[in-house]
Design a protein around this nucleic acid. Structure first.
Lengths: 216, 216
DNA sequence: CCTACCGATCGGTAGG
DNA sequence: CCTACCGATCGGTAGG
């Protein structure tokens, strides 16, 4: 939403016929934008926002140094686009992971597993960038992305409160939610898919750590 | 240790007598170095390493733009000094928090509370900088600080293993330790001393979340 | 520790 | 989307 004003307008029609495979009047329009976002996400994650140059990003997307600014008003707006794309993908993944009829414990397990996928699936640099570059956004950009985050977090409250009511989660839910997200998000610092523990293993460990056994 | 080569050598003895209050032959030597480290820590935390300029740091320490390089070989070596100072303070605090005779649960509680102090005490920017700017260090700098981190983390293993043996911690200790550190470290993103929950409240919540009730 | 400075780089833009 | 470029800034250094 915050990026609307940068949506690709109709490009200058220099070759009106386009390339053979394209419908007449429709060109590659805007297809380079996702490539820029992907390249930026990877570089922002590896080197950080401030240490990444727009020239790095352009080169990774196969462009010349000034070309990113045809698609994005500024470097910061590229960062915001990365984060928005990350949150949209995370919300979509979360919706798929949550069937309506799950009991609270298995709902929480699915949320955790889905969250780990969002953080660690191959090429999933978008949300980690959001977690580490929040301060590089201006106030307006933060507002837009914060509302996506609230939506994402809202799905966790129901299962957590149900588990608290059952006595299987003993900490106050608001603080517990923050601590749990911290435990999961911090995995971007240490999780290595080539090591022994898999994401399923880590999900099991998280459930064992946070959720107490059911009382008979 | 990694910073040894930058320790202030005897400064050029331009005013051999020094100022009145000083012993002859001893000047302010090196007293500006801590001020630089403090200023750098605050700025690195607020704006990030790459977005902070050495001019910012110099100004915050009341110096001219080139002067930090009299005390530190490079901007990165200033970052390493910030992190080392943070780990030394954290280790000292941890040692004070741990009496030898505590049971595992209260030992863990003290470790958690001490860790929160290290992260959130007024002016405690050093360790948060370490948590967020690890990638800005080169390999040699990482090695030096990693050994301090290992020492710090080692103190947690005993209590955690004892609690696992008692059935009060159900997840595998190595993964549990990573998840717990994540939950605590993430608090730098959300903890606000002016809000309702105090560090004692958050410590209580963390213990309730991770440690299951003692079986009678 | 200051003064004066350098070489390199960076985000962004005009014009096509 | 490329070419050519600008103004500003940055880490770092020489010399005192």
């Amino acid at each position: 939403m915050v990026q609307r004003q940068f949506a690709p307008a109709a490009p200058p029609a220099k070759r009106p016929r386009g390339r053979p495979r394209k419908t007449a009047g429709e060109r590659d329009e805007g297809n380079r934008r996702p490539a820029l976002i992907r390249a930026a996400a990877r570089l922002f994650r590896r080197k950080g926002f401030a240490a990444t140059t727009t020239r790095d990003i352009a080169a990774a997307a196969g462009m010349q140094s000034g070309s990113p600014f045809y698609h994005f008003k500024s470097k910061a707006s590229l960062l915001a686009a990365v984060m928005e794309e990350g949150m949209r993908a995370a919300l979509a993944r979360q919706a798929l992971a949550l069937p309506g009829n799950a009991d609270p414990a298995s709902a929480l397990r699915r949320l955790i597993r889905s969250h780990f996928d969002t953080l660690h699936a191959p090429g999933a640099d978008f949300v980690p960038v959001m977690l580490y570059e929040w301060r590089s956004l201006n106030a307006r950009q933060r507002t837009a992305i914060a509302s996506l985050q609230r939506e994402y977090e809202a799905a966790w409250v129901g299962p957590l409160e149900a588990l608290a009511a059952n006595g299987r989660l003993r900490a106050p839910v608001p603080i517990a939610r923050l601590l749990i997200f911290g435990a999961l998000n911090w995995s971007v610092q240490w999780f290595d898919p080539r090591r022994s523990a898999s994401l399923d293993d880590v999900t099991d460990a998280a459930m064992e750590l946070f959720i107490h056994p059911e009382l008979p």
